[in-house]
């Protein structure tokens, strides 16, 4: 008899304590009409979201200057580039555009900004922006705008900004 009542009282007391003491947490996100990985990655600014977002917006994507094994670079996930069939070139490090102070000029072309893992000395996280316009074809170059801001920018945008010939 004691066992059953002890157990039931233990459950009831702990339930009452739990309901009274713990804050109510959100159980879901409401009003989110997004059902694809790219849309959700965009909505959540996913740290690894570049690959699905680019793949969802272009039939074919190629990116150069993605070397992540040197200082002053960021991590573009190899597995995700393969999953989304993105052609990648890891030979060279991101093009250093810090001297050109383009952080403001690129703004009209920015489609997404998110945190990214980077190899900057003393810094684990940087920011990555994805930039293109309606004339872009899917050819991208990885660049560095400031000490903690990197970008994957469409080649035609880099030409418009006078970075590429």
């Amino acid at each position: 008899m004691f066992r059953v009542w002890f157990a039931i009282i233990a459950l009831l007391v702990s339930a009452a304590a739990g309901l009274a003491l713990y804050p109510k947490e959100d159980l879901f996100v409401a009003g989110s009409p997004h059902y694809s990985t790219a849309e959700l990655a965009l909505e959540e600014h996913w740290i690894k979201g570049a690959a699905p977002i680019l793949a969802a917006n272009f039939d074919e994507v190629s990116i150069v200057n993605l070397n992540k094994d040197v200082e002053d670079s960021f991590v573009f996930d190899i597995a995700l580039s393969e999953i989304y069939q993105i052609t990648t070139d890891y030979t060279d490090a991101p093009v250093d555009l810090r001297d050109l102070a383009l952080a403001n000029s690129i703004e009209p072309f920015v489609f997404e900004r998110s945190e990214i893992f980077c190899n900057t000395p003393g810094q684990k996280y940087c920011e990555l922006l994805l930039a293109w316009d309606e004339d872009s074809s899917g050819s991208f170059t990885a660049v560095r705008f400031t000490d903690d801001l990197y970008g994957i920018v469409a080649d035609n945008v880099l030409i418009r900004l006078g970075v590429m010939p």
């Binding site: 409401a30 989110s32 997004h34 959700l40 909505e43 959540e44 996913w46 979201g49």
Partner: peptide, 10 residues
Amino acid sequence: LRGIPHSDSL
């Protein structure tokens, strides 16, 4: 409605 965001989900 959708689940609470988490990178594992993505």
